[in-house]
């Protein structure tokens, strides 16, 4: 029973990390078809925004959402200066955002230095089936679920969500109906960036902030969104559950590197079996 509880915790933990790092990408890549290789650096910016906000004295529960807002604003700036010239040129967005990612790593290293920084959560530990886990990790798992549900609700139940989905599906028709699609693209990119920044800030108390931290997340994020398939949220959710389970179990039983390699192997085999992704055969969804 205890072992089961520990495994359940490990799986939930890996799952929430997958959700956190890939949710923003599900919006930017899954919905907008912009291959954002600077995604990892947006996570890094969120983490640093959180570190800076705490350094000026803000409590963590305020610093985290503020980090989301800051990265969202940066995302809008990036969309206006670079991305908006590249819609429809998928490969070029990939290359340009890669340049952006190198630039961001360089500039943050110059300003903040290469060393890692962190913000303690000070919530103490919880005993779970004999395993001591930081209580903050439960907050993080809750945060990930809230972000997922919130995003789903925003797209599914609000009129703004309807306009966004319509614009992504058929921009010309949306324009003909009087929607300012350029603004919608800008908003969606900013929203995806904000989710990513929020994720980075949520990760800080456990993983810290360093200029090159984006590297550790970018591969997992793309694996989750790509094998999710055409329905960004549902796909990312199901892929995160699958890979979170594999990663959680194997990481706990053997080592975290082996967990990641296992995730990669499964991802490659999955691409062979389900080239359209997990949700490729569903007819409609989000």
């Amino acid at each position: 029973m205890d072992t089961l509880l520990v495994y359940a915790y490990q799986v939930a933990f890996s799952f929430s990390i997958f959700i956190l790092i890939s949710l923003g990408l599900a919006v930017i890549f899954g919905m907008m078809k912009v291959i954002n290789l600077a995604q990892g650096e947006f996570i890094m910016l969120g983490a640093y925004a959180c570190v800076v906000c705490s350094a000026v004295g803000l409590p963590l529960w305020l610093a985290v959402p503020l980090a989301g807002v800051i990265v969202g604003a940066i995302g809008i700036l990036v969309e206006r200066t670079v991305i908006r010239f590249l819609y429809g040129r998928v490969l070029d967005t990939l290359l340009a955002t890669w340049g952006l990612s190198l630039f961001l790593v360089g500039i943050v290293t110059t300003i903040a230095g290469p060393q890692s920084q962190s913000v303690p959560a000070d919530l103490g530990g919880v005993s779970l089936g004999g395993l001591q886990v930081p209580a903050y990790s439960l907050v993080m798992i809750g945060g990930a679920c809230a972000m997922l549900l919130g995003t789903y609700a925003l797209w599914r139940f609000t009129s703004l969500g309807l306009i966004v989905r319509g614009t992504m599906q058929n921009p010309e028709m949306a324009r003909a109906l009087g929607t300012n699609t350029s603004m919608i693209y800008m908003f969606t990119f900013g929203f995806g960036s904000a989710l990513t920044g929020l994720a980075g800030a949520l990760l800080v108390p456990l993983f810290g902030a360093a200029p090159t931290m984006g590297l550790f997340y970018i591969a997992k994020a793309f694996i989750a969104v790509i094998s999710g398939g055409p329905w960004p949220l549902l796909g990312t959710l199901s892929a995160s559950s699958l890979y979170g389970t594999i990663d959680g179990v194997i990481s706990y039983a053997f080592s975290s590197v082996l967990g990641e390699i296992a995730v990669l192997l499964v991802a490659i085999v999955m691409l062979r079996l389900l080239p359209q992704g997990i949700t490729g055969r569903l007819r409609k969804g989000l």
Binding site: A96, G99, S101, L102, F103, G106, I107
Partner: peptide
């Protein structure tokens, strides 16, 4: 930061 320059060159 050479990467910073390379990033700008790429963009």
């Amino acid at each position: 930061q050479v990467t910073l320059v390379l990033g700008v060159v790429l963009v």
